[in-house]
Structures are given as C-alpha cells and as structure tokens.
Design a protein around this nucleic acid. Structure first.
Lengths: 147, 147
DNA sequence: CTTCCTGCAAAAGTTTTGCATTAAC
DNA sequence: GTTAATGCAAAACTTTTGCAGGAAG
C-alpha cells in the first residue's frame, strides 16, 4: 500500500506542505488499525510524538482530506483515514466502554440510504450530502459485566 | 403537551430527584425548538441559568432518559429531547456552519436499517443496538457564500 | 429537619497557540 | 537561503466539581 503514501504526498504538495516522517508515521498508524484511533494512542506510542505535533499534523491531514475526525462523545477525539483512501464503512459503538469498530452493510441498504438521503437533503436545500450511519449498543464484554 | 412534564416528573421522582422550575424551563426550551440546542443557548438565554446548573441538570435529565446529548464536533455539545418524548428522527448537518436540522426518512428505509443493523450488530456480539443516521452536507446559505 | 438544588468560583481535561530551533526543499 | 515542521510550555476553552446557602418534601 505504497499507493496511499503517494496520494498523501501529492495532496500535501498541492498546498505547499511536506510529507515528513512524522506525518508518514501518523498515516501508517492509522492505516494499520482498522478502527478510529483515539488521539492519545497516536501520541504516547513508541513514536513519542508530542501532543502538539499530533494535533497539528492531524489538522493538516484533515484539511487535505486524508484523515477524518470521528467524534464519539468520549473524552478524546478519534481519527481514521478518510474514505477516499479506505472503503465506505460505518461505526459500531459501545455506549458503555466507548469501543468503536468498523462495519459494512449490504450494498442494497447503502443504495437505499444514498437515494433517500439525497432526496431528503435536496428538499431541505442542502447540497453535496453524504451520510453516516452509526450503530450504538453494548459490546459483548460490557454486556456480561452488567449481569 | 403537559404530558411531557408529567413523564419527566415521574422519571425524576423514580430516582429521588425533583422536577424544579429550572429543570422544567430546560425541558420547555428543548421542547419548543425542533432541533438540538447548543449549550450556550440554554445558558445565556433570558432565563439566566448559570452554566453549572445547565450542565448539571442536563446530566441528570440524560441519566433518566429525558434528554439526549448530540455531539457534532463543534465547540459545544447540543441537547435534544430523547426519542421517548418525541419521534425517531435523524439529523441534517451543515459541515460549514454547523447548523443542525431534524429530518425523517420513509418508514421503508427505517425498517431496512433496523433489520440490517440488528443483524450486523448481533454478528459482532453487540446487543441492544439502535441506529443513528446523519446527513452531512452544505446548507443553502453556506453553498451560496462559496460562490 | 433532612435531602436535594443552586450558584459562584475554582479545577480538570482536551485542544490550540507562541516562539525559538531544526529540518526540508 | 527560504519556507515549513517540530517540541516545549503556556494559553484557551469546554465541562466538571467543591462548597456554602437556599428550597423542597
């Protein structure tokens, strides 16, 4: 998946930014994990990236559409690679422990959602509308602890 | 819709809490507005509720399932009445100005989503799963400003 | 009269910013 | 050489908490 890095580099250069080793490390970390990563996990890691660099670099990468900020209501925000670089997917969120997993749904449902979403949004005067479906429930281990 | 207040009162009493005038004012404010309300709008308003009271009361009301916290990635969180007291709906969010509107989608799509969601979630070991569909785009006025 | 609510001020916690230094082009 | 990235520390900002006084049951 060198592909990904080439794309990132191109996007950054397009706005006069550099694809430094630190930024590459961030992208690598996000690419490895199949779920949105909380910010402290990107900072404290063995890479020893200082917080300010993590926040600043994620902001830059978000501006060029490489990463996507996922807000879940937890203490920290999470980041994932943007769907340009991955696949369209949704999130399965545990309302108790905050765990987030990526999931996909059947294409039939995706098509229905896309169709309906653009109709509904158009009626309300919105344009360029995408959708985001989150599934919120209790994960197996939190469910067991409750009993 | 005195109904609503009776329900709130019952829920609060159930956990040894009181339905005070301040709390009633909060519920009223949320009931009047057909969209999630940012916290400062509940605080600075003519009611002059101090921030700490707003935050504490919303937390209590959330615990008894009367209100629902909506996190959008904006500076402030928003709150709305929980779906027990309103209707199942979704949010249309402007990615530029942050504006949020309530929308509903056809029941056919709701049914498809509910069915798929529980299947997908069950496979992942999650239980008690509900869904949340957000439509994210650009509202009319932000779209005009861009040109 | 006991328990909960209120409001102010202070604390906590996440995210942003200033500034001097270092690295990239 | 010029422009951008880094890292530290401090600031900004939202949200939470402690505590004393007041209201509710």
């Amino acid at each position: 998946m060198i592909e990904v890095h080439r794309i990132v580099e191109t996007r950054l250069k397009g706005v006069g930014q550099r694809y430094t080793p630190k930024r590459r490390a961030l992208v690598e970390a996000l690419r490895r994990t199949e779920k949105p990563v909380p910010i402290p996990d990107l900072a404290d890691g063995r890479r020893g990236l200082p917080q300010s660099s993590v926040y600043r670099n994620l902001a830059v990468l978000e501006q060029v559409g490489i990463v996507h900020r996922v807000v879940t209501g937890e203490e920290f925000a999470r980041y994932e690679l943007a769907e340009d670089l991955t696949k369209h997917h949704h999130h399965l969120v545990c309302k108790t422990c905050g765990k987030v997993e990526d999931v996909t749904v059947p294409v039939g449902l995706e098509r229905s959602m896309a169709r309906t979403v653009s109709a509904v949004a158009g009626r309300a005067g919105f344009s360029g509308v995408s959708h985001q479906l989150d599934l919120i429930g209790t994960c197996r281990s939190c469910g067991q602890n409750d009993k």
